[in-house]
Each structure stands twice: as C-alpha cells, then as structure tokens.
C-alpha cells in the first residue's frame, strides 16, 4: 500500500479519496521496471530498479483514479488551444552553422559526430 506523509489530516482525507476508488493497487515488478528502463534507454542497476519499482507503483496508483472518470463521447485533448497547425512557406532560413553546434559535441571529426563503432 501507499506510504504517505500528508501535511494534515485534511490532506490525508483528500489523498485517500483520490487513491482508493480503484480495484487494486498497481504493483510493478522488477522485470517490468527493467523493461521500461530499457525502452527509455536508462542504464540502471538492480538496487535502482528495486527502488523505482516501489516509487513507480505509488505514482501509478495515484494515476489509476482516472479509471473512475466518465469520458464517454469526450474527444481527447492534445493541445490546450485546439488550434490547427500553422503552415509556413517551404523556404530555407539561416540557422546556426555546423561548427557552432559541433563545438559543444562530446566527440566530432571532420564535421561528423563520433560514436562507438556500430558495424563490425
């Protein structure tokens, strides 16, 4: 279950109301967290995985209260202003030159970015 330290009894009541209206607490396993970390390309050790499993489960527990909202016939809102994408002329505009960008790169040579060998 969640371990919470709200500032006040009233805060606790608010929180409990938010988090209890669901079937069962979300509990991520270490393997699930390892999979998410892999998807996100985050290199984590086993201790970190274990800590994150608990923390992410707590967060997803809060988020699970979305389930109870009635969203029948509600259009998803991707953008706060519901505007159509603005179009612009397809023309070249000057940008910072390559040397400026490559000056801050970890490793470059002759105008390319260097990474470990990817093809044997």
């Amino acid at each position: 279950m969640l371990v919470l330290r709200p500032r006040s009894a009233a805060g606790a009541a608010f929180f409990t109301r938010q988090c209890t209206a669901k079937a069962k607490p979300v509990s991520l396993t270490a393997d699930q967290v390892r999979n998410v970390a892999r998807l996100a390309r985050l290199g984590l050790d086993d201790d970190q995985i274990a800590e994150y499993a608990g923390e992410l489960s707590n967060i997803l527990d809060v988020v699970a209260s979305l389930e109870k909202a009635d969203t029948t016939d509600v259009e998803p809102m991707a953008h706060p202003l519901d505007l159509a994408a603005r179009l612009r002329a397809d023309r070249a505009v000057p940008v910072t030159d390559r040397d400026d960008f490559q000056a801050i790169a970890p490793a470059t040579a002759e105008g390319v970015y260097l990474v470990p060998k990817v093809i044997e």
Binding site: L66, E67, A69, T71, V74, P76, A78
Partner: peptide
Amino acid sequence: DAYYLKAQKTRRLIA
C-alpha cells in the same frame, strides 16, 4: 489507451 488517451480525455473535462 488506459492511461495516455484516457488522460487526454480527462484533460478536456478539466478545460
């Protein structure tokens, strides 16, 4: 669908 799409819908309700 359960999380992201649902949250986009509740976002509209809030707005």
